[in-house]
């Protein structure tokens, strides 16, 4: 199983030809208590870097961008009722949406887990 990260703190976990997208542990820590998540509809096609979702904490709101291009196949309805999941298990249960990748090669533009770890250490 391979996981990639973006510099905007999204992750994409590859499961076959589907990528599972969410925000990283570091991102949820920075945002604080998450109060609302707005998710894309299934069938929506996204270009890499498009705004795909919105995540709101009490004092901030951020866009979640599509790490790669593809089509949304499922979004995580559990988050609508229980946004706190994003704080609890950001990189597991609290995924945002699943997408069918249109070009696997785009993954090469992203960071590996180790690269990302070094990246956030640099951020202090």
């Amino acid at each position: 199983m391979s996981v990639y990260f973006t510099k905007d703190h999204e992750y994409i976990r590859i499961e076959g030809d589907v990528g599972v997208v969410g925000i990283s542990e570091y991102a949820q820590e920075q945002l604080g208590d998450i109060v609302f998540v707005e998710l894309p509809d299934s069938g929506k096609s996204l270009q890499s870097g498009d705004e795909a979702a919105v995540v709101e904490s009490v004092k901030a709101a951020s866009e979640v961008y599509a790490p790669v291009s593809g089509e949304v196949v499922e979004s995580n309805e559990d988050l609508a009722d229980n946004p706190a999941l994003v704080n609890e298990t950001p990189e597991e249960g609290a995924w945002f949406f699943k997408m069918k990748l249109s070009d696997q090669n785009e993954l090469e533009n992203l960071m590996s887990a180790d690269d990302y770890k070094a990246f956030i250490e640099d951020l202090g």
Binding site: V35, F36, E56, S57, V58, A60, A61
Partner: peptide
């Protein structure tokens, strides 16, 4: 719900 408002967004 002030995260929707102008001073943050």
């Amino acid at each position: 719900l002030s995260a929707r408002e102008q001073h943050i967004r």
